[in-house]
Amino acid sequence: MTVSRAALVDLLGALAYGELSAFDRLAEDARTAPTLASRAALAKMAGAEIGHFRLLEEYLTGEGVPVEQAMAPFVKALDGYHASTAPHDWLEALVKVYLGDGLAVDFYRAVAGFLPEPSGSLVRQVLADTGHSAFAEREVAAAIAENRQVRDRLALWGRRLLADAITQAQYVVAEREDLAELFVSGFGDLSGIAVLFKQLQKQHSRRMSALGLA
């Protein structure tokens, strides 16, 4: 399929701001880690995220688009999502990293399937696991094994993250005409997009189970 330049810039700009925001959050969350080992783990993840951001920055610059310009339309929506889902403690922060980033990975990986090269390969490279999955599963499993109330609280938190993330994603697509056209073309029609969101929900449930929060 043919992908317009405007749609591709929008997609990569949204992804770039997501990576920059992930770096900011991980660096901040690292300071609340309960141990030096946990702090170091999140700091390493933050370093990986800024590396992904630089890949997108280099690509966009090569296409003659300043990364700041590409990211600008998505700042309000992504900042709004992070403000509305600000974690109250270390465990909520860890669950947000694991589940929130997982949703983003699932979404962009689906989109990468119909992008032209080298854009598709770039998106898949940026989606590489930074190592947070196994780390988050261990940390959360240990915490909820000791306290049932912690498990119940984090389960509610995980469900809220899904609802807020999908709401923001729908808002962004509605606001960006070129992105909306890209998704409708790539997934066939509006029903195809609905199927995608159902798949995202299923993957979210799988990750909740992996954390012991199902």
Score class of each variant (00 low, 15 high):
11 L>S: 01
164 D>N: 13
100 G>A: 04
211 L>Q: 06
34 P>Q: 07
74 F>C: 06
115 L>T: 02
113 G>M: 13
40 A>Q: 11
131 G>I: 13
2 T>W: 05
20 L>A: 07
95 V>D: 13
46 A>W: 15
198 K>M: 04
174 A>D: 12
209 S>Q: 14
98 Y>D: 14
199 Q>V: 15
211 L>N: 05
55 L>G: 08
52 H>F: 09
50 I>E: 07
176 R>Q: 05
158 G>P: 03
82 H>F: 13
203 Q>Y: 07
47 G>H: 15
20 L>D: 04
132 H>F: 12
192 G>P: 06
148 R>N: 14
120 G>N: 01
147 N>Y: 11
37 A>W: 07
128 A>V: 15
206 R>Y: 06
45 M>P: 13
148 R>K: 11
52 H>M: 14
95 V>T: 10
9 V>M: 06
40 A>G: 13
7 A>T: 00
144 I>H: 12
112 A>N: 10
105 V>L: 10
144 I>C: 13
69 Q>T: 02
125 Q>I: 12
1 M>H: 09
59 Y>C: 05
177 E>F: 00
106 D>H: 06
191 S>H: 15
32 T>E: 02
133 S>I: 07
108 Y>V: 06
107 F>C: 03
163 A>M: 08
192 G>M: 03
75 V>W: 07
95 V>I: 11
214 A>D: 10
180 A>I: 00
111 V>Y: 01
166 I>L: 04
